[in-house]
């Protein structure tokens, strides 16, 4: 059984609520044709002190704000990495940034993966598409505290080989001792070379060999993914309270005020984005 009280710790309220602090972009890496990784440092020297699974509100005057998951773990040092997919106005501006550019940030916000109660459990870390961004912060954390956790498996699914993010890291995880790591893509278009698996991520889950009593499954991915993966997990005997999900909602404030992220009585930004499945499965529109 996973203990109660998952993901409840909230950050200290910062004041004033809507005022970002300034950060500098210290490194940029192209992850895919639509995703870039940004490494940020705080200009005021204060620590980010985020936990895996939390998110920040990126603020670019003129383009507004967007919630972006933290993709790195503090165990790697006091910087923050964000993997950003270019989908609209703000994310497009972000993709124009250079090393040395300054942006605003608020947060970190939201609940995190409760690494304490995951201790000594086997972990099944399942992500799809952009979902690997927040998952990577947990993966890094687990890697850096390897002895605290049991057998850890990473499953990742992307639409096509071009969409696979964190390619080299996935290879490292696959080749290293810390994890079992499998990657699959939905489709391979003609002319692309791909020697990995093809098919839906549910196939990976189906084939997984897990110790049901000891396992905690963490799922982060596009909305369609959850239902299907959860069905497969339950087929294997994983119970609802052993499943952790991270949900995405339209967010404006990140602090439980604007109302855009609600799921019935819950606010995805302060009660989530990380939820234990049994807590939300009955809520209409949650998944």
């Amino acid at each position: 059984m996973v203990s109660k009280g998952l993901s409840t710790s909230l950050p200290q309220p910062q004041k004033p609520l809507y005022e970002p602090f300034s950060c500098e972009v210290t490194a940029i890496k192209e992850l895919t044709h639509t995703e870039k990784l940004f490494r940020l440092n705080r200009l005021d020297g204060l620590p980010f002190s985020h936990k895996p699974g939390q998110f920040v509100q990126v603020s670019i005057p003129g383009s507004g704000e967007a919630p972006i998951s933290v993709s790195s773990s503090t165990t790697r040092g006091d910087y923050l990495e964000l993997a950003v997919r270019k989908v609209g106005s703000l994310t497009a501006v972000m993709h124009q940034l250079n090393v040395g550019s300054k942006i605003g940030l608020r947060g970190p916000f939201g609940s995190s993966f409760d690494t304490k109660s995951m201790k000594n459990h086997d972990l099944l870390l399942i992500s799809g598409g952009c979902g690997l961004a927040p998952m990577r912060s947990l993966i890094q954390f687990v890697e850096d505290r390897r002895d605290d956790f049991g057998r850890s498996t990473i499953f990742y699914g992307a639409k096509s080989p071009e969409d696979v993010m964190y390619k080299t890291e996935l290879e490292d995880w696959a080749n290293g001792d810390a994890f079992t790591c499998r990657v699959t893509v939905d489709n391979v278009s003609g002319g692309t070379c791909w020697d990995g698996q093809t098919g839906l991520i549910t196939n990976l889950v189906e084939a997984a060999d897990i110790d049901v009593g000891k396992t905690i499954a963490v799922i982060v991915g596009p909305p369609v993914m959850y239902k299907h993966v959860i069905v497969k997990l339950k087929d294997k005997g994983v119970s609802d309270d052993q499943i952790i999900v991270s949900l995405e909602r339209y967010m404006k404030c990140g602090s439980g005020k604007c109302g855009h992220c609600t799921i019935e009585h819950l606010y995805c930004c302060i009660d989530g984005p990380v939820f234990r499945y049994d807590k939300i499965k009955e809520l209409k529109g949650a998944l």
């Binding site: 383009s63 507004g64 109302g259």
Partner: peptide
């Protein structure tokens, strides 16, 4: 209490 947020330039800067 719900609200939306947007940015708008004015003469001397940007207001949120």
């Amino acid at each position: 209490t719900c609200f939306d947020v947007f940015d708008r330039t004015n003469g001397c800067g940007i207001d949120r």
